[in-house]
Design a protein around this nucleic acid. Structure first.
Length: 885
RNA sequence: GGGCGAUUAGCUCAGUUGGUUAGAGCGUCUCGCUUACACCGAGAAGGUCGAAGGUUCGAGUCCUUCAUCGCCCACCA
């Protein structure tokens, strides 16, 4: 085994071995609850980013843990066709060739996208493999595969037949660059510095002739004036009451428009009078509906103005804005202009400013779907981790609005609706050949495709074969955990819950684990434009997969963002190296001889271990406690804490203390520590494997050559559950460690040569026997010789000594020539002050009658115990102080 | 306009039913003899837990108000 752990030496080979042996495939285990995760499908065009790496780490950790627990496990990988994103990529390629998709035509274009997808689809798979994901690749699925296609059509038709999908002319968010409608969620609002233009609309008299009176309206988008069909005021607004029912003359267009009263108009904004443009504004659309106003859409799909815009026909919307302001000013109708901050919607995909406009689209009526989706979270059938996001979820669900699902794209799931020549509408799972109503066979399919998130919403069950009642569906659904970033709670998680309940009547998963965003070292979001994006493959190359996984698993808590930087990755890499070297030491110590692990009945019973050397009893006890703790933390989805516990156990307890203690017995092999060294090591490997699969499996394979009875591969080995601890051994070693630390501390402060052995006394009462037996350990760890364990301070020298007082023992080091009395007094005084403060604090608490009356007995008992210890410590320090004079 | 989160050591973060003298990693300082590891070992310094009130025998943890930062949702043109 080389001196430093080299991640690259083994990772690829190990992954191939796992794959070849079929370890990722689900096993059927009777009487064990199945554990299933459906992987969030990355965009087929995408590169693996840190979010994917985090998801992969968390999911793989849970999957590997459950697999080792002996549960049947299935982890389904998948890829998303990513409608707009993918179409955009291919359109950009075409643009470079001087073409648009329209030059190719729909069929050829879609073919071209498939070709591109075929080329790159494997890339994301290979990148995932680098992270060690143990998913069942035979289950891999694409959103445009036949199964999911069928699930999409089935769902659409069912929703349609129940009246939960409808087509209508409504105001939608329109992206003029993508040339499609998008949903509310796909609009990103951005605070922008803009203007508020105040425009005068002349009032008409009874004979429709212009008067000298005006109504002044304020607008942030003057180009939409050409689509105005009314002016609205609040019915209670005294300023405008008198003009309600009159007409105004729309500037430029010279349309006669009514003045209506509507509660939606605020009296404290602008002039209190608002222009009404139902074709281009959501609020106005509603006002228009209430007052039966016509809808005028004055723009084309690319956001140039159309013939409704009169003189501006053909011009760009922002060019029109400038021109119309000039024109209004020239006409004397521009009252004034104010600076104004407003929230402008941008397309999530391409950042183009979104234009609200009326268009005929397909919608899902979401409220009936939301009600049961609220209930399953409220009742706890689905638990969101962290819990705080349940409120966010509820808030959104309770205020949910209809979902625009049609997209004017070519790449995606085409809407399964056909129109016959006689205007009949057919929604059908299978392509129809004739109209069900009139028998016409002139059928044309709706040209639109569905929002990508529609198919994503079916993912937990469409991947398992639904609508067929497949064995997979029966075995694995509902799934166990859904892991993703909190940023797609609404996009994805909410829709999965709604559509799962609608389609299957069951929840899609029991737990939703939401991770936070990974930020750069300065806490900024990672973006391509900022150039601060960390590529998971680059850091994997630099630090090793295990280090990346350990960092991602332990850096944050669910739902909270965290920063990623090199020092964290270094720490994780060092941890892998630490484990590697401890393993090397253990294996080398075996000297090629095969070691048998201690009998399991001994390991499982603290009583049976009673005759063992203290340090063995202790480290086995600690192993049992650690295993139990790790299982509990993983059950609670506290991966960061589980990783932390293992880090502490392996590094501090096993390496820093037990290994050093074991070296004493390795020298004279009276009772070899090798079985226990090996036992704890193999247990640690098992416990750590879900988070750091590569280094643990590598060591495991080495260890198998030297230790009897280890399973053929760690990935399928049993996971330790923890067992009986040994409180006595725990307490004894705790004291032992304190004694060693106290001696080391004195040595360091008195600047005793590191190599020099010094004489030491320990004054102890009940612990004397234990310390006597442990003398060889103290001698080796603290570099002490001879080591005296005595009953009272009187049995130890008091002149030219340095001392430390512990709760259950005192340490006394005769250091003739190295003792500075003043320094020693200061040392003892400092300890004395601390001890005094401690005693005061506890006795104050215990003297408080309320505390005695109201605190639980166990708390009082513990306080009394620590008071006794603190008092004896204080007394010993006072004694020592008086000796110092 | 609503809602949520953060604020703990120089830095990055833990701290899950309120209960020992609040922890870790990195960084800093001192020292390094050794059958694993310098990607290491030993020792040390460093915090009135954002502020102010309150509840409680007891508050980093619960409540109220405020401050700063961040995020989400929302049709005030």
């Amino acid at each position: 085994m080389p001196k430093a752990y080299d991640p690259h030496a083994m990772e690829a080979a190990l992954y191939q071995m796992w794959l070849d042996k079929g370890y990722f495939k689900p096993r059927t285990v009777p009487d064990r609850e199945p554990f299933c995760i459906i992987m969030p499908p990355p965009n087929v065009t995408g590169e693996l980013h840190l979010g994917h790496a985090l998801t992969a780490t968390v999911e793989d950790t849970l999957i590997r843990w459950h697999r080792m627990l002996g549960d049947p496990t299935l982890w389904v990988p998948g890829v998303d066709h990513a409608g707009i994103a993918t179409q955009n990529v291919v359109e950009k390629q075409l643009a470079k060739e001087g073409m648009s998709r329209h030059d190719l035509g729909r069929e050829a274009f879609v073919e071209r996208v498939w070709k591109w997808v075929g080329q790159i689809r494997n890339r994301i798979v290979l990148q995932h493999m680098r992270l060690g994901v143990s998913c069942d690749w035979d289950h891999e699925i694409f959103t445009l595969d036949d199964g999911p296609q069928r699930a999409v059509r089935e769902t659409f038709v069912r929703l349609y037949n129940e009246g939960l999908i409808y087509k209508g002319k409504r105001i939608v968010n329109w992206c003029p660059r993508c040339m499609t409608a998008i949903s509310d969620l796909e609009v990103e609002h951005e605070e922008t510095q803009g203007h508020l233009w105040y425009v005068r609309y002349p009032l008409l008299d009874d004979a429709d002739h212009p008067t000298n009176e005006y109504v002044t309206v304020a607008t942030t988008r003057p180009e939409t004036i050409v689509g105005d069909v009314a002016v609205a005021v609040n019915p209670d607004d005294q300023r405008w009451k008198s003009i309600i029912g009159r007409k105004a003359l729309l500037p430029i267009i010279e349309r006669h428009i009514p003045i209506v009263a509507d509660d939606a108009v605020a009296t404290d904004f602008g002039t209190g009078a608002v222009k009404v443009t139902p074709g281009h504004d959501p609020t106005d659309f509603d006002i228009g509906a209430r007052h039966n106003l016509p809808i005028i859409v004055a723009m084309n799909t690319d956001a140039t103005m159309n013939e409704e815009a009169g003189p501006y026909n053909g011009l760009d919307r922002f060019q029109t804005r400038e021109l119309i302001v000039k024109d209004l000013d020239r006409l004397g109708l521009l009252d004034h202009v104010e600076d104004h901050t407003l929230s402008v919607g941008h397309c999530e995909r391409c950042d183009t400013i979104v234009e609200p406009l009326v268009s005929e689209q397909w919608f899902v009526k979401t409220q009936p779907l939301a009600e049961p989706a609220i209930e399953v979270v409220r009742s706890g059938q689905i638990q969101i981790i962290p819990r705080s996001f349940e409120r966010t979820y509820m808030h959104w669900m309770e205020n949910i609005r209809d979902w625009c699902i049609s997209r004017q794209l070519w790449w995606g799931h085409r809407i399964p609706v056909w129109y016959c020549g006689n205007g009949h509408v057919i929604a059908s799972v299978d392509d129809p050949t004739q109209c069900a109503t009139c028998g016409s066979n002139e059928l044309a399919q709706d040209p639109d495709v569905l929002d990508t998130w529609f198919s994503s919403g079916l993912w937990p069950f469409s991947t398992l074969g639904w609508p067929e009642q497949t064995p997979d569906l029966n075995n694995w659904y509902p799934t166990s955990v859904l892991e993703t970033g909190y940023d797609i709670l609404f996009f994805w998680v909410a829709r999965m819950i709604m559509l799962s309940l609608f389609d299957t009547g069951k929840i899609p998963f029991r737990h939703v684990y939401l991770h936070g965003l990974i930020r750069d070292a300065e806490g900024r979001k990672m973006t391509k434009s900022r150039g601060n994006v960390v590529d998971p493959l680059v850091i994997t190359e630099k630090y090793g997969t295990d280090a990346v996984r350990f960092t991602l698993a332990t850096s944050g808590t669910p739902g909270n963002d965290f920063r990623l930087f090199d020092e964290k990755l270094e720490r994780s890499r060092n941890f892998a190296n630490k484990l590697w070297n401890a393993s090397r030491f253990v294996i080398q110590s075996m000297g090629g001889e095969r070691v048998s692990l201690p009998n399991e009945s001994l390991i499982d019973s603290a009583d049976a271990r009673r005759d063992w050397p203290l340090e063995d009893r202790w480290i086995v006890s600690r192993t049992q406690a650690t295993a139990a703790e790790v299982n509990k933390l993983l059950t609670d989805f506290q991966l960061n804490a589980a990783g932390g516990v293992l880090y502490d156990f392996i590094w501090n307890e096993y390496c820093d203390w037990y290994l050093e203690m074991a070296k004493v017995r390795l020298k004279d092999s009276d009772k070899s520590p090798l079985p226990i060294l090996a036992y704890v090591l193999q247990a640690s490997l098992r416990l750590l494997h879900p988070i750091m699969p590569f280094v643990t499996e590598t060591v495991w394979q080495h260890l198998r050559d030297n230790v009897e009875g280890l399973e053929e591969a760690l990935i399928i080995a049993d996971y330790p559950l923890g067992g009986e601890t040994d409180a006595e051994a725990d307490a004894d070693v705790e004291l032992l460690i304190d004694v060693v630390r106290a001696i080391r501390n004195i040595r360091a402060e008195r600047q005793v040569d590191a190599g020099r052995f010094v004489e030491a006394y320990v004054v102890a009462d009940t612990a004397r026997e234990m310390l006597d037996a442990a003398a060889p350990l103290v001698e080796a760890l603290a570099r002490v010789r001879p080591f005296h364990v005595v009953a009272t301070p009187a049995d130890a020298p008091s002149d030219q000594v340095a001392s430390a007082v512990l709760d259950k023992a005192q340490v006394i080091l005769p250091l003739a020539g190295l003792i500075d009395l003043d320094a020693e007094r200061a040392r003892v005084q400092k300890q004395l002050d601390e001890a005094q403060a401690h005693v005061n604090r506890i006795s104050g608490k215990l003297n408080n009658g309320d505390f005695r009356a109201k605190a639980p007995a166990s708390v009082i008992a513990r306080e009394e115990e620590s008071l006794t210890a603190a008092q004896s410590r204080l007394a010993a320090l006072q004694q020592r102080m008086s000796e110092l004079g």
